[in-house]
Design a protein around this nucleic acid. Structure first.
Length: 423
DNA sequence: TCTGGGGTCCTAGGACCC
DNA sequence: TCTGGGGTCCTAGGACCC
């Protein structure tokens, strides 16, 4: 074996971020809710112990909250994003060969670290992150990413491992796989779990031992890769440079249902501006735009409406002015009076690098002007926040604003919040 | 009353072309 | 008029991730 990966993942990440700045939350059950305070998306260990499941609607746990004095927080992505950056910064001191996999997980390529004491090294990573950022993490080390995920998972459940597990020894790998349900393997979702159960495959160890032909047939080439990774053969490389996104989507449920086109247009315009910012930050232009609008999925069938409109742009662009024009036009064409709308959004596709845009006769004559304006807007928003410059169409009163009843201050990124907290 | 948001990749099938 | 196969491109749908 030559390859070696570590995965470092923040324990109950959002709840832990909140705890770093609010010691009162220590030792208490804490849950963090999704946008609009809809559903539970993060739980402290104490909250998990009370049986609160991932994704349950907030209203379903009201009794539990009262009885156990659970601290319920709205999500604060500005805070979590900044804490995530600090964790990555810390990890990058250990190796530059690092992949930021998600807001709370990074893979490290430990390449030829076979001659160091891996247990001690992994423990040093864990303790350093805790000391420098306040975030508790778990570290799993193994010859493939998929096995590292298995190690990481067990490290959190086993008191003996206490957040650090190295799986390089064949006997240990076998034992770990036998203890891991197939549903908990990275890459095996609910559908495959059911399918595999029909063949009597219920543990990661069973899955490791299927034939290549079986894996290929029932789980496609993706599943075959997973099986090989479970055997210790590394098939999924570290991606140090994040690939440019091929789709960029911004959508939100409204804080309350909306009926008026003007209010919905305000929300969609704001999503469009955000989406265009994301597009420009990866130096791309989009050639296709989709706008969608929908009522609640939980409405009676007669009151359900979903529609979308996809438009091929005359010329790929990242100009908010142009995208706003297309988006509001598309919205107009799918809006129907008489429904109570819950959500709207925009998806940008056919994304190309901004220096490879094919110009043609239909392109806007204002490209240079728009790009200068976008640069100015980007730098203003960078300094003063994304709400500092707005278009008229976004509206002043945000009828659609998120419901956030208990959001914590942005302790690390907003001066006004920091001042407020300290006084 | 209240039920998240943002992504990726693979496959199968049809259209179309030579 | 009939015969055949192979290739590419696109799209929809299905699976997964956090």
């Amino acid at each position: 074996m030559t390859s070696l990966f570590a995965i470092v993942d923040g324990n109950n990440f959002y709840a832990s971020c909140e705890r770093v700045f609010n010691p009162e939350l220590e030792g208490r059950p804490v849950v963090v809710l999704s946008n609009n305070d809809g559903a539970v998306i993060a739980r402290s260990n104490e909250a998990k112990a009370l049986g609160i499941k991932m994704g349950v609607p907030a209203f379903e746990i009201k009794d539990l909250v009262r009885r156990h004095d659970i601290k319920v927080l709205s999500s604060n992505y500005e805070l979590y994003g900044d804490m995530s950056r600090r964790v990555v910064e810390t990890l990058s001191r250990f190796t530059p060969n690092l992949e930021i996999y998600s807001i709370d997980e990074s893979f490290l390529d430990l390449g030829d670290f076979y001659n160091v004491d891996l247990n001690e090294y992994a423990r040093t990573i864990k303790e350093t992150v805790k000391r420098w950022t306040g975030i508790p993490v778990a570290v799993g080390v193994a010859p493939s990413k998929t096995l590292a995920k298995v190690a990481n998972r067990i490290s959190k459940k086993s008191a003996k491992a206490n957040g650090v597990l190295v799986l390089t020894d064949e006997r240990h790998i076998e034992e770990a796989l036998k203890r891991t349900e197939v549903a908990d393997v990275w890459g095996i979702g609910p559908r495959y779990t059911r399918k595999l159960a029909a063949f009597g495959i219920t543990t990661a160890w069973h899955l490791r031992n299927v034939t290549d032909a079986f894996a290929r047939k029932h789980l496609t080439v993706v599943g075959l890769r997973t099986v090989r990774e479970l055997r210790g053969m590394s098939c999924i490389d570290l991606e140090m440079v994040p690939a440019a996104k091929q789709n960029i989507c911004t959508s939100r449920s409204f804080g309350k249902t909306l009926t008026e086109l003007g209010d919905i247009r305000g929300a969609l315009a704001t999503h469009t501006v955000r989406c265009a910012s994301k597009l420009r930050s990866q130096k791309s232009c989009a050639g296709v735009l989709t706008v969608f609008l929908q009522t609640s999925r939980f409405n009676d069938p007669g009151q359900c409406y979903f529609n979308s409109r996809t438009i091929k742009l005359d010329c790929p662009t990242s100009s908010e002015l142009e995208l706003l024009r297309y988006a509001t036009g598309a919205l107009q064409s799918i809006y129907r009076e008489g429904y109570r709308y819950k959500k709207a959004g925009i998806i940008l596709q056919d994304i190309v690098p901004d220096n490879q845009v094919q110009l043609n006769l239909l392109c806007s004559p204002n490209i240079d002007r728009d790009m200068k304006l976008m640069r100015a807007l980007d730098s203003l928003r960078d300094r003063f926040g994304h709400k500092s410059v707005r278009y008229g169409v976004q509206g002043i009163k945000e009828e659609w604003a998120l419901k956030q009843e208990n959001v914590s201050p942005c302790f690390t990124t907003r001066l006004e919040d920091i001042i407020r907290v300290r006084s």
